[in-house]
Simulated assay, not measured.
Amino acid sequence: MIQAVEVSGTRLNKYISETGICSRREADRLIEEGWVKVNGKVAGMGLRVTDADFIAVGGKPLKAKPAPVYLVYNKPVGITCTTDPEVPENIVSAVNYRKGRIFPIGRLDKPSEGLILLTNDGDIVNKILRAGNAHDKEYIVSVDKPFDAEFVRRMSAGIPILGTVTKPCKVRQLSPTSFNIILHQGLNRQIRRMTEYLGYNVTRLKRVRIMNISLGSLKVGQWRLLNQKELAIITAMLAESSSTSDVEPQKEPRKKQRFKPPSANKRPKNTQAAKTQRLGKKPAGKKPVGKKSVGKKKGSGGKSIKRP
């Protein structure tokens, strides 16, 4: 009887891409062209590696991939969920996490407040966004005037916005002008659009829970690390999620720069002369060889004489 052998380690191309220097496809190219060495030997495709292996790309040691980080942040009103440093009061600057690059999972409107997760783990971001239709997001909302049971019924049943009808959700009245709502979707400004459709305006919107993660006693503007128990539950929930997504597509991240290992055979510099030569143009500043240009002929009274 043949026994199954457990395969350990991570495929080399995936390991390289997770350090952030290039995509997995680009890592394949580097391996195929012999730019990658593992423990001093040129690596082959399909090789599996661990953190114990010494990996060099283009003769330079590969930096170890950072340990995954997961933050729970109580976002204040006025903070924008973007990693763009040019945007004032962006969420990365507000959190001020100094141990590496992080980015938000999903978004929370600038006028809204409450719970949002940040991480450096792209895999979990994709899983959470893909599974947006399978997990709870809970909010406490205040509106500009009192509402009745009909408002609660219509909000719960679904509201036509953005060319679709929102999925049924749980809505519970807390006071004449506030309610608790649990969504399974992530449409753009969904709650605000739903209430506006019914003739109300949101005066305060606070997210208090995502899946099994709650704000608890976390104060506005503070953050904490996700604990091991919370992470274990999230991982288990994501493992059971479908691949169907109801979240609005996120903006595509900037493409990773193509990794260019040092080469002994350098290409010629991209000079202007080289450009004109490639395009089949004649070099500037030189007169074409052939017919001579004819100007004014002496004794013609200053008139130009055309050659027959």
Rank of each mutant, 00 (worst) to 15 (best):
M1I: 14
Q3C: 10
A4M: 13
T10R: 14
R11Y: 05
N13L: 07
Y15D: 08
I16F: 03
R25W: 10
E26C: 06
R29M: 00
R29L: 00
E32C: 11
W35C: 08
V36S: 08
K37Y: 12
G40C: 07
M45Y: 12
G46R: 08
D51Y: 12
D51P: 09
A52S: 15
F54R: 15
I55F: 13
G58M: 07
G59T: 12
K60N: 12
P68T: 11
P68E: 11
Y70F: 11
L71M: 11
L71R: 10
V72Q: 11
V72L: 11
Y73E: 01
N74F: 11
N74P: 10
V77F: 10
G78W: 15
T82Y: 06
T82W: 07
D84Y: 12
D84R: 14
P85F: 09
E86M: 12
P88R: 15
E89C: 13
N90I: 09
A94S: 15
K99Y: 13
I102M: 05
L108F: 01
G114I: 05
G114H: 08
I116Q: 04
L118N: 02
L118Q: 00
T119F: 05
D123T: 10
D123I: 06
D123L: 09
V125H: 06
V125Q: 04
V125F: 04
N126S: 06
L129D: 04
G132C: 05
G132T: 14
G132Y: 05
N133I: 08
H135G: 09
H135A: 02
K137A: 01
K137Y: 03
E138R: 04
E138C: 00
V143D: 01
V152M: 09
R154D: 01
M155C: 07
G158A: 06
P160G: 09
I161Y: 04
T166D: 07
T166P: 03
T166L: 04
C169E: 05
C169N: 10
V171M: 04
Q173T: 13
L174V: 09
S175A: 14
P176M: 03
T177H: 06
F179K: 03
I181M: 03
L183R: 01
L183E: 01
L183N: 01
L187G: 00
R192V: 00
R193K: 12
E196M: 02
E196H: 04
Y200D: 00
Y200N: 00
N201M: 11
N201W: 13
L205Q: 04
L205I: 02
K206A: 01
V208P: 04
R209W: 11
R209E: 09
I210C: 09
N212R: 14
L215N: 06
S217R: 15
L218M: 07
Q228L: 12
K229G: 09
E230T: 06
E230C: 05
L231K: 11
I233F: 09
I234C: 14
M237V: 06
S241L: 07
S243W: 08
S243H: 14
D246I: 02
D246W: 12
V247K: 10
V247R: 11
E248M: 10
P249E: 05
R258D: 10
R258P: 05
K260I: 13
S263V: 10
P268E: 11
P268H: 00
K269T: 12
N270I: 02
A273K: 13
Q277N: 08
K281C: 02
P283Y: 12
P283C: 02
A284V: 13
P288E: 13
V289C: 07
G290P: 13
V294T: 15
S300K: 15
P308Q: 15
P308H: 13
